[in-house]
Amino acid sequence: MGAWTVLQERQAMLLDPAIRDWVLLPIMLVMVLVGVVRHQVTVLLNGPPRKADLKSARETKGLQRGSILRAHGNHLPEYAFEARKAYLTEAFEKGTYLKDPKAGNKPKGNVMQDPAYVETMMDGMKKNMMNIVPQTVIMGWINFFFSGFVLIKLPFPLTIRFKSMLQRGIETQDMDVSWVSSLSWYFLNLFGLQSVFTLILGSGHAADAMRDMQAMSTMGMGPAAGPQMSPTGQPQDMHKIFLSEKENIELTEHEWGLNNVETRLLVKYGKLPRSILVDQKKAKAAATSVSGPSTSSLSSSSPAAVAAAAAAAGGKKKGRRQA
């Protein structure tokens, strides 16, 4: 208990202003400048936008057909949806949209010779280099020049567990965890300057650490125009992707959004109370659960019919009990 109180006393230390002038501000300045430079260099390195390959574009767009149908298919009447569903499931199965229908499973040895894949890999590598190299260099620089002394006090307390991480190089036992070394100032800057960069460079700047961390975990995701690469850097088997998309489509049921549009319109203009919609939903749920195997869900929309259906559902239940 006593030791704890000692630590809690506000440790009033004053630091040499030279530290502020020669370490605190320079580190921050360097990080800002490096971020800006990195952004410009990335823009330069990327060069003119790569010419899109016709077949690749068709492949990706073909895949999108499936997702768009699933996302917005409920705006279409049933026959339109079913027709597209049937067509797409067949097309994905047969591989109509594949870039190279006869490819099958390409033996991995040939990957390096395919120029398109090499390009995508180079792109991914370039991006990673631009992210990792500056970080490593700055960290090394800080560790070399600015270690072994206390840099700044954090205005908020932290637990003891952070002591070893934040005070690396300063081996004391009693000092507040809030007094931290230069390396932790570096990390603080790394995270805090994200929004500053967004302010200066506009969104989509190349110095985004969040994207760095994502990039480190999933390597080599090229832009949509190029051939797709899986996280491990192998060329993805598009056929498998199409097949999984096909299954997704097959599983999608059509729920026509315009089933009760008249009622919704009447409610919108205040001709009918909003509770009608709730009643309709309840009746529909009841009807589908009772009618079980018969797949056609209740689609009638008028309130009178809904009430009749609810009564019928109740009647059905009764019939079962009696029988």
Partner: peptide
Amino acid sequence: LLSYILFWTLLYGIIHVYD
């Protein structure tokens, strides 16, 4: 919050911790 902490630490350090 992250940028807040950064600038908070910076100004706090400059004004209250250094001579």
